[in-house]
């Protein structure tokens, strides 16, 4: 039986997907801006963030209305609480893209310290994890969500590698590199944080689909032996 409520839930899902697409663009653009050291692209990431913030507010309001007016239960309740969490994580991811764009602007006009190798790798992981988390949401795919969570360690390792290299090979050896090394160090940190938020989203999706709490319980995740 199709309920009127189903239409409202479907509208909520559409809003989240719209936000997800905007956030994916934001990550992509900030990474491209970095690769090209392109000020215009960086500025656009920063200015586009307002629309994402507004959408987060709309989604929150929509969720609160549904909670208050429909008193949802079971899968509906899980969907709405998950949506609120996902909107928060997406907004944070967008903020981190803005942070990356701002670091790009710090770097513009200065020669790159070194060719970018690991940071683009990390950026690819961050983009793919975010994309897969959203795909898992669209398709209610707990397995894909699980794979997102498992990839987070890879991101952590890569961030550590970048950090170690920048500190030990550059900053400690030649302090004049610090102004160019710190933005890269922060960018690696921002990208790794994006992966953390994608992981949160994936954990929420598993709760929504299977009612299993895997947050802070990685041992409950299938395939994590």
């Amino acid at each position: 039986m199709e309920r009127h409520f189903d239409q409202e839930l479907s509208d909520l899902k559409k809003q989240l997907l719209k936000m997800g697409t905007m956030v994916e663009t934001s990550i992509f653009e900030s990474v491209e801006a970095l690769k090209e050291l392109n000020v215009e692209r960086a500025i656009k990431v920063i200015s586009d963030d307002k629309a994402i913030d507004d959408l987060e507010n709309q989604i929150d309001e929509c969720c609160l209305d549904l909670l208050a007016l429909q008193q949802p239960m079971a899968v509906d309740l899980r969907f709405i609480t998950m949506s609120m969490n996902i909107a928060t994580d997406l907004e944070r991811i967008a903020d981190l893209s803005v942070d990356i764009a701002q670091r790009v602007m710090d770097l513009v006009g200065k020669p790159l310290l070194k060719p970018l190798i690991d940071i683009p790798k990390l950026a690819n992981i961050a983009k793919q994890m975010s994309k897969d988390a959203l795909d898992a949401f669209v398709n209610k795919d707990a397995e894909l969500a699980g794979s997102v969570i498992l990839r987070d360690t890879e991101a952590d390792k890569l961030r550590n590698l970048v950090q170690k290299e920048l500190i030990e090979d550059y900053m400690l050896k030649d302090t004049s590199t610090v102004t160019r090394a710190v933005p890269l160090l922060l960018i690696a940190r921002h990208l790794e944080r994006i992966c953390d938020h994608a992981t949160n989203i994936a954990e929420d999706i598993i709760y929504f689909v299977k009612a299993d709490v895997v947050k802070h319980h990685p041992e409950r995740l299938e395939g994590n032996n």
Partner: peptide, 19 residues
Amino acid sequence: IFTKPQDPKTEAYITGRFG
């Protein structure tokens, strides 16, 4: 029962999808 019912029939009933 109200957040994660095990049986699809329970879920259908408490979410008002029965029909």
